[in-house]
Design a protein around this nucleic acid. Structure first.
Lengths: 353, 353
DNA sequence: CTGAAAGCGCTTACAG
DNA sequence: CTGAAAGCGCTTACAG
């Protein structure tokens, strides 16, 4: 298993041709006579020659692979089925274009540090909630990139979601159902200073909620409204439920910013003997497939996860292929849809409206 | 977004130092005086310099990434939650070692073609049921690799599973429960000529079944035993159920070679109004987390999926780091466990034994 | 149809 | 502590 030391030169020598001819045999064999080609291939075979991808990349300035820059460790990220679907979408494009996909988790805890080392033609940046220099580093890297589920940046390509609108619809519905004590369970980011300092998806989701609350004379600051942050995992949902249920004023509705969190809330509610939705309404965000099987099934805001991945990758491919920078920044916006299912209903004290 | 043309030479010029000094600044900054270092970093910053990963790889003969060679398109592969868990396991090791993970699906339909192009330090090869030259190509590539869920090869490192044993236990149990009309629903490979020509995991699983059947004077050739092949998807399970249920002699037990297939069988059985397990026993293989939530919960053979990924990656890292080829071929064998749950029971005609 | 030459951008001994 | 030189292995014009 020792490193292969056979180079194109060795093959050329053995076949009595130039290095160029050997290169042609692999990259543009039509330009060679059949005899020469066979001769070269035989020599390569006998020697056990294999091209060096790094040398090829350096020379061609092409890696034929896309990078997915991730906000967390690989195993953490994959705990959320969200990423499986997202990867599927990216995978469709990669397949079509014959590209490989490099998964790039933070290096020594930092997304920033991972950026210079990845041999890719472009990056899909996922979950960059809060820019700490990553965008600058990406620009400096000099290859195209697309932001997904990230803070919005002027002039930076991205795939966006109509999440504000989706959240507004959901909260509208809950308010109409008589809910006033509402808890928002947001995805934990390491922003300090509470929800006013949020950015990216959580900010936009809270924004929708805020707009909706305002119509009923409420705000995130109101006594009846609670905001908590929790890790984006099932366990995060369990924890959040327990915290909230231990309060004096229990909420009648819990609005989770992610399905996986909502699943955890459902688990913890069942364990605590709390009936959903008669005692507590619970909603999620994403519409993972599991959301329709839970007991009760989960009210949620659907987003086209795989499509998001596919579009991000398609844009990247476009930008990589383009000879010059596109004159117009690509900022796609995808719509969401409110799905009312079994986990939400009228607020306990009021009965159905 | 034009390609970055600033090289280490430009930075060196601007900082009035040699290229070596600039390289040192990034790779071994202790060897530089504080003043020089700052000087270089400032110049790099001003110029917007970014290292070229390909050049670095070529020079160092290191990519710091692992390749996962996949048997199918990325989006197909990720349809099976099996791979999510497997990736998590690999991810743990990558994280620990500061490695990235390159997903390498077949190139133009061929695993073989993808092998020479991936810039990786080693390959984890998944689901190479039937070798068509891949092993030779991998050897030729001159970098370490580990086979997982693949045909066994003399002298080739692999992570194996005690699947024969697991299957034997399962079929024993079914036979004791009075089942005689048993259908085996295998994962489709493109081997011609029926089960005798199978290799790799399906062969080993069928082997266990065969051994067990023999004790009751049965064999895969017996009239009461059916073998079908189906794609390893939920839909594959649905199709298999329908085919089998349309036969004159319906089986009383369906033994799927994968949980995801078993889920499809359960779906189709419910749809057909067939009660599991009173009319039909169904079993899977894998123990995906969903297996304990299905209705009824699924009897299956547990395998340590994430562990398999982690070990494969660990071995690879070892082999990459080792100065010389390991004197002993690494062929790990992991055990399986039969989990009896709600989807299996006594054969209909006989009642409980 | 084939070959000689240049160069992709970096790191690593080596010399000072 | 710093610099000049060599070379990693390939592809791409260019000339013939």
């Amino acid at each position: 298993m020792a490193r292969n030391r056979i180079t194109i030169q060795d093959v050329a020598n053995r076949a009595n041709v130039s290095k160029s001819a050997v290169s042609l045999a692999y990259n543009d064999s039509k330009k060679l006579s059949e005899a020469t080609l066979q001769n070269i291939l035989r020599a390569a075979e006998e020697l056990g020659y294999s091209q060096d991808p790094a040398a090829r990349m350096l020379r061609t300035q092409r890696t034929d692979s896309l990078g997915l820059l991730l906000p967390q460790q690989l195993d953490k990220v994959l705990e959320n089925p969200y990423y499986t679907q997202f990867l599927q979408g990216i995978g469709q494009t990669c397949q079509q274009e014959g590209l490989t996909l490099l998964l790039v988790p933070p290096l020594r805890g930092s997304m920033l540090k991972a950026i210079p080392y990845a041999a890719v033609d472009g990056f899909i940046v996922s979950g960059l909630e809060y820019d700490r220099g990553e965008v600058t580093a990406l620009r400096q890297r000099g290859i195209p990139f697309v932001l997904v589920d990230s803070e919005w940046h002027e002039g930076v390509p991205s795939v966006e979601l109509d999440e504000t609108e989706g959240m507004r619809e959901l909260v509208d519905y809950l308010l109409r159902q008589g809910h006033r004590r509402i808890a928002f369970i947001a995805i934990e980011t390491d922003t300090a200073g509470g929800y006013q300092n949020w950015r990216g998806p959580v900010q936009r989701r809270m924004q929708g909620a805020t707009e909706s609350l305002a119509q009923y004379g409420l705000s995130p600051e109101s006594d009846s409204i609670t905001i908590v942050e929790t890790p984006c995992t099932r366990l995060g949902g369990v924890t959040a439920f327990r915290t909230l249920w231990a309060q004096d004023e229990r909420p009648t509705a819990m609005v989770a910013f992610s399905d996986i969190i909502a699943f955890g809330i459902l688990d913890a509610a069942r364990e605590a003997g709390v009936d959903v939705p008669s005692q507590l309404s619970v909603s999620g965000f994403d519409d993972l497939s599991e959301a329709s099987w839970t007991m009760p099934s989960l009210t949620t805001i659907r987003q086209p996860i795989a499509t998001k991945g596919r579009l991000a990758a398609e844009y990247l491919v476009e930008a990589i292929t383009a000879s010059s920078p596109p004159d117009t920044t690509h900022q796609q916006r995808l719509s969401t849809a409110l799905l009312l299912r079994g986990s939400t209903g009228a607020a306990p004290a009021l009965g159905p409206t």
